[in-house]
């Protein structure tokens, strides 16, 4: 398979555009000096990822990603940024000064990971391209073979909900406790 064949496929054009959006936005997430911009760049990254999932014929996962991440998690992040009064303007102190080491580690990791996958998979093609996985298949799998992990994950969510409330709740001083009892 040569580059000419690869580039002539329209799905690969979609991949190039989505990949550029995802990579550029992810770069903005970790380099932007404005906290709000970084959170909004994560929205672009996740939207591009949802597009990649559609290319990979995983429609249900793509829309779950849009609903859960772009809909809920990002809002949570924006709340977190605003409540902790993170410096929302330009701020040079947002990054640690020793960036060179982090760059070396990240570059090394990228080279190692991509070298490994290039070696292991070469030009393996995707199977049944353009044939979306039926949501029915995912649903039957979730409530069939994977019903125990599914219930475990719902328990994790419940525990996280209660834990989040308990941790973030303001502890009352004894005097305030008495006052609340009286009301």
């Amino acid at each position: 398979m040569n580059v000419g064949d690869w580039i002539s496929h329209p799905a690969n054009w979609a991949f190039i555009i989505l990949g550029l959006v995802v990579a550029g936005a992810a770069f903005r997430v970790v380099t932007s000096q404005n906290v709000i911009h970084a959170a909004l760049a994560l929205v672009a990254t996740l939207a591009g990822t949802a597009g990649l999932f559609l290319l990979l014929s995983a429609e249900f996962v793509a829309w779950v990603l849009v609903l859960v991440y772009i809909g809920a998690v990002i809002v949570l992040f924006l709340f977190g940024i605003m409540i902790t009064r993170a410096p929302t303007g330009r701020d040079v102190a947002l990054d640690h000064p020793r960036k060179a080491w982090a760059t070396i580690v990240a570059l090394g990791l990228f080279v190692a990971l991509s070298w490994g996958s290039l070696r292991a998979f070469g030009t393996t093609e995707l199977a049944n391209q353009g044939e979306p996985t039926a949501t029915e298949t995912v649903g039957l799998s979730l409530l069939g073979r994977f019903v125990i992990p599914f219930e475990a994950v719902s328990f994790v969510l419940l525990a996280a909900l209660i834990g989040g409330i308990t941790i973030a709740r303001k502890d009352l001083t004894p005097a305030e406790e008495v006052e609340r009892e009286a009301r």
């Binding site: 398979m1 690869w6 496929h9 799905a11 690969n12 991949f15 990949g19 995802v22 990579a23 990649l52 290319l55 990979l56 991509s114 996958s117 290039l118 998979f121 070469g122 030009t123 393996t124 093609e125 995707l126 391209q129």
Partner: peptide, 9 residues
């Protein structure tokens, strides 16, 4: 589409 383009991204 080959799988490696997604893995490298």
């Amino acid at each position: 589409m080959i799988v490696n383009q997604f893995l490298v991204l």
